[in-house]
Design a protein around this nucleic acid. Structure first.
Lengths: 252, 252
DNA sequence: CGCCCGTTTGAAATAATTCAACACCGGTGG
DNA sequence: CCACCGGTGTTGAATTATTTCAAACGGGCG
């Protein structure tokens, strides 16, 4: 929970996850000129339809990718956690096909698009790491299609909780439970459900002993059972090694 | 409808769509050693969980990306049309997170993974084109999450039909209508619905005059209205220019 | 204290599913 | 040539998951 010394430290760590980087690669990333900004919940990092000149990296706090349907319904497409770059696709695509908005308050580091492009050209290993991280994002997207397309409410929510927990744990941002950074309405928009149905389903999960909740703090008394309820398997996250996630009350 | 002279011709065309390639780039692609295979419906191009050593490019026929849930339900994640490379992500990712299967019979060209990797290193423009095309795929995936997450059956099906029509048209594979290369059950698996509900919904669309059907041949008497019924806008396809798609009976 | 946002609960309505039967079509073999 | 067959499409009726609407509740904050 202590803030990283260098703004891009966690971003660097996340890239190294995907691809080995040598000292020069790492230094080149840390030398990138950044502007650090503090943002409020709801602030836009990217707006649909525009070409951003900057690419923001989340340092602290959470964000989400989002799209609206014609009649105003919202679908959340991805959750961004500290260390995620929010805009990598826009290094190659000319127009943002979705919006990115802050979920909580937090801070971001803005990189110049051109700086990033130069870096990728100068250091192919960094380019490879960036590509890999966008490919993993695509894999997560595929799993989300499965989630909203073929699972019922209980499975969907359990799955989202599992995914979020694992992603946080592998970055050292939580263990055995976490502060869910969103309202039930936002959870509804990530699972393609209604806020009231999310509420009822959370209570079911709680009644079954799969989660405990105090306010928005969620814990997993039976991690194994939650995974199975959510039909969750971490394969699609393409994590390099098998970190263990512990039960809420019985860290193994 | 006439088969391309060179097996990779349509693949090349699709890449050029995303990024300008000079004569040397293009020649390098066409010089790639290929093995051409004829495949039956249902044949696997990629199996989940394995590392393919080859990357197949669809020359003829259709394929789909697919994932199964724990209890055996299937979700189709993408439709591949002639010119699509089926495996680009596996150039960087070590394990396939989903399967790819032939929808119809057809032919594919197999490229050696290492050949492709060498090509990308030798010709950065080709690499850029490949990256862009995987990013467009990710954009389509995002739209699919919205589709199954936030649209009702009628909208979902109309949307899938629109997307498929536009993608086919921009590759010169159809105009004003097409032969839907899948059963209603497969359409159900792409929309997250039940086969019988797909059936009923198709009849609704037909009754509304948005589509006509004879067997699996679909036409669009009112293309504008179908788009609006499906909440479809081609922006997310990141197409370079604004090709026009015509109504079934009134090519404009 | 009172207000507002988010959560919780209930009852009624609806979209989609399930199960089951039947129709259709092209292909195969008698 | 016809009969049958399996896969696909079509239809109906009953059931279920989820939504909708509406109202009450709770806690944090000005």
């Amino acid at each position: 929970m202590s803030p990283p010394k260098h703004p891009l430290e966690r971003f660097l760590w996340e890239l190294t996850f995907h691809r080995e980087l040598d000292a020069d690669d790492r230094q080149a990333i840390l030398d990138l000129p950044v502007r650090v900004r503090q943002l409020d919940p709801g602030a836009y990092l990217v707006r649909e339809g525009v070409v951003p000149k900057i690419c923001s990296v989340l340092i602290d706090g959470y964000a989400y990718r989002q799209k609206l349907t014609g009649d105003g319904a919202r679908q959340i497409l991805a959750l961004c956690i500290p260390g995620d770059a929010v805009d990598l696709q826009n290094m190659f695509l000319n127009v943002a096909d979705h919006a990115v908005q802050m979920l909580t308050s937090g801070t971001v580091a803005d990189l110049k698009r051109s700086d990033l492009q130069d870096l990728v050209l100068a250091r192919p290993a960094v380019g490879a790491a960036i590509i890999k991280s966008t490919l993993v994002e695509a894999s997560i997207l595929r799993e989300w299609v499965v989630n909203v397309g073929r699972r019922d409410a209980r499975e969907r929510i359990a799955h989202v909780l599992c995914e979020f927990a694992v992603r946080l744990e592998t970055r050292g941002l939580s263990s055995g439970g976490f502060e869910l950074p969103m309202t039930q309405e936002q959870l509804a928009d990530t699972t393609g459900l209604t806020p009231v149905h999310v509420n009822r389903t959370l209570k079911v999960l709680e009644a079954e002993g799969l989660i405990t909740r105090q306010r928005r703090h969620i814990q997993f008394p039976d991690w194994r059972a939650l995974q199975s309820a959510g039909d969750f398997s971490r394969q699609y996250l393409h994590l390099p090694d098998e970190d263990v996630i512990h039960d809420g009350h019985a860290p193994a």
